[in-house]
């Protein structure tokens, strides 16, 4: 775990740096409050709507597909690092593991889940 001390160190410094920049901005930036300035941007016409509205379902579909495929990808990483030692049995095993995923992929494509 010793190699991760560097990560912690740079994390602490990055947080400190970001915090310092935010604090400096609070300190030196002017603050002039105007009602119009706090209006959310709504284009040249200035027509406002309710932003917290519903949006297209396709974004949820992408999230679900992501979960399905990403879990499989995680298995590929350790497998790839030792593929040379595993040899052809390893390759066949992974092909068998990925094959159902290929079926799911073709099904999702056929159902139009990948169509935007």
């Amino acid at each position: 775990m010793a190699e991760y001390v560097g990560v912690l160190l740079i994390l602490a410094l990055a947080v400190a740096l970001t915090g310092a920049m935010l604090a400096l901005n609070l300190r030196i930036a002017p603050r002039r409050d105007l009602a119009a300035k706090r209006d959310p941007y709504a284009g040249a016409g200035g027509v406002r709507s309710a932003p917290r509205r519903r949006f297209a379902v396709r974004f949820y579909v992408v999230a679900i597909l992501f979960l399905v495929f990403d879990v499989a990808v995680v298995f590929l990483h350790p497998w790839s690092a030792v593929l040379r030692e595993l040899g052809s049995p390893g390759l066949v095993a992974m092909a068998l593991f990925i094959a159902p995923l290929g079926v799911a992929y073709v099904y999702a494509w056929g159902k139009g889940a990948l169509r935007w």
Binding site: P40, Y41, P51, R52, F59
Partner: peptide, 16 residues
């Protein structure tokens, strides 16, 4: 978090 139409659209696109 911005409470703006354009920002929300950008957010869901960025997420996907």
């Amino acid at each position: 978090s911005s409470n703006s139409d354009y920002a929300l659209l950008g957010a869901v696109r960025a997420g996907a």
